[in-house]
Amino acid sequence: MDELRYEAPETLDAAVALLAGADGDARILAGGTDVLVLLHCDMIEPDLLIDIKKIPELTGIAEEDGGFRVGAAVSAMELVEHDAFPKAWPGVVEGVKLIGSIQIKGRATMGGNVCNASPAADSVPALIAAGAIGTIVGPDGRRDVPVEDIATAPGQTSLGKGEILVSFLFPPRPPHSGDAYRRFTPRTEMDIAVVGVGISLTLDDGGTCTAARVVLGAVAARALLVADAAAVLIGTPLDEAALERLAAVASAACRPIDDKRGTKEFRIKVAGVLARRVAQDAYERARGN
């Protein structure tokens, strides 16, 4: 076996050049909580690891255009402990907080969570619900894509050769907006989502929903942005009838698999129940600001 090279470039251009110019299997190393597990278990045999944690664009959290720009390689712990971000996007932080133990959160990143492309990734439904935009840089320049267009199937993304996810842009929040994420797991900590739901809502002054994004995780090959589920909430004050319809539409949108954590039937049922609860969490938050 050839020796595994390690590079830690300090600029984005250098990282793209390394990634695009590599002959064999070159991998990005962010927090390494997925990559190093795969490496240890001999499930990947890369020739080059490109550590992106020394690149300024990937490691900062800044306010931008009334919203936030968060580097793809910011650690989960740093995001959770940030003074302003968790107040603006509590649902995204709920998702990020569920990524493994304190130790794992010290290393894990949202960029890695998205690009690892697990259907059960905990930050992804909340990121999509938030309307976060991923900024991607590669040999052909820069492009912006909604987070829902990054993971395409388990372990697969739409990133081309040499492309790096640099940061996430979170839009400014209109008044009376709130988001939330919950997952169902048999254990309360250190487990993988059987179902995850992220919802972001905006209300008018009277408490009627004017905008919604509803996202289901772990019930299909990738997280599902369910427009029909948002539609049943818009124009309502999230009364019993609306929540009832939300649950039915969310369950109907699921295309899950059976596995040791849950059967198809169970996942479909739980998706509806969780969607209701998460919508209520998001609604309470939206009313409070």
Partner: peptide, 27 residues
């Protein structure tokens, strides 16, 4: 475990609690 699950390898890295099995020596 060497895969981040058990925490037996917990150390502080620049003041942050991490699993030493999920950090490379070069890092």
């Amino acid at each position: 475990c060497a895969t981040g699950d058990c925490g037996a390898c917990s150390v502080m890295l620049d003041g942050c609690l991490v699993c030493a099995c999920l950090v490379l020596g070069v890092e």
